[in-house]
């Protein structure tokens, strides 16, 4: 067992874990943060995307021990009193149906806007290439992200602020 200490959505966690424990399983089963789901086992679907020290990572592709000392933001820590603009835009633009990809999609979108606050439509599509959705055909997801980019013009969007 190895000791890990990390801050998840603003709360500090200290645990002894097996080194093979995946960060996503640590989040879901040790820390009880089940807002981040698992959709595949090959790093393709992106459902488990969270922010680690401010940038997007696939939490199935990080060992919990590798996140020792890190600051993690999940979909459950994104809202700050009120919904994050991306949460609002996903809702209002109908950018989700079953919602399984949504936590990862929103976190990936947050990172995308941090990296490129004024993306073109193609840049949004390319920036979300690591997140699969089976319901929406992505059209409204792209629309929601572009809308937030417009709203937050000039600002640094998304990161764990």
């Amino acid at each position: 067992m190895n000791h890990v200490s990390m801050r998840i959505d603003g709360v500090r966690y200290d645990d002894d874990v097996e080194p093979r424990l995946l960060l996503v399983h640590y989040l879901r089963e040790v820390a009880g943060r089940t807002g981040t789901p698992v959709g595949c086992d090959t790093s393709n679907c992106g459902a488990c995307t969270v922010l680690m020290n401010g940038v997007s990572v696939k939490s199935c592709s990080v060992l919990a021990v590798q996140a020792d000392g890190a600051e993690i933001t999940t979909i459950q820590g994104l809202a700050n009193g009120e919904w994050h603009p991306l949460q609002r835009a996903f809702h209002e633009e109908h950018a989700l149906q079953c919602g399984y990809c949504t936590p990862g999609m929103i976190m990936a979108a947050a990172d995308l806007l941090r990296d490129n606050p004024r993306p073109s439509e193609q840049e949004v599509r390319d920036g979300l290439e690591g997140n699969l959705c089976r319901c929406t055909g992505y059209q409204n997801i792209v629309r929601a992200v572009l809308r937030v980019a417009g709203e937050m013009a000039g600002e640094q969007a998304g990161a764990a602020s």
Partner: peptide, 17 residues
């Protein structure tokens, strides 16, 4: 806009797992 979204966009969804 959908009622379902409130839990889905905030990670409060009740998946079987």
């Amino acid at each position: 806009a959908r009622k379902e979204d409130a839990r889905l966009v905030t990670g409060q969804t009740n998946w079987t797992d």
